[in-house]
């Protein structure tokens, strides 16, 4: 095997960092949501890489579970976005300040 595991881990770190930047700077809530999905997938990639390195498949199962949670999260989160958009007519994250003070 020619590509070292650390390369895969580094790729995961890069993707995770991109996801973090996205979450921090984007003002569109749907993009923000997608950035979270990206971060989840970066973590998944690290899991897969470790699985491969240690020759166990438990990581695969974890990835599977993470995907399930992501799907559930997407369903609920998008539902919330629809509701908020219906009430506030915006997808600007900075205007979602219901919990202010």
């Amino acid at each position: 095997m020619s590509v070292p595991i650390s390369a895969y881990l580094t790729l995961a770190a890069v993707l995770f960092g991109l996801g973090t930047v996205g979450v921090l700077i984007t003002r569109n809530i749907i993009v923000l949501f997608m950035c979270i999905e990206l971060m989840l997938n970066a973590a998944n990639m690290a899991l897969i890489a470790f699985s491969r390195a240690l020759n166990v498949m438990d990581g695969h199962v974890m990835v599977f579970l993470v995907m399930t949670v992501a799907a559930a999260e997407a369903a609920v989160g998008l539902g919330m976005i629809i509701t908020i958009h219906r009430n506030r007519e915006t997808i600007n994250i900075d205007r979602f300040d219901l919990m202010k003070w």
Partner: peptide
């Protein structure tokens, strides 16, 4: 401190 802005929360979190 509680601005209600999700992004500033996320920044602090990070």
């Amino acid at each position: 401190v509680q601005t209600g802005r999700v992004r500033s929360y996320a920044t602090l979190f990070a």
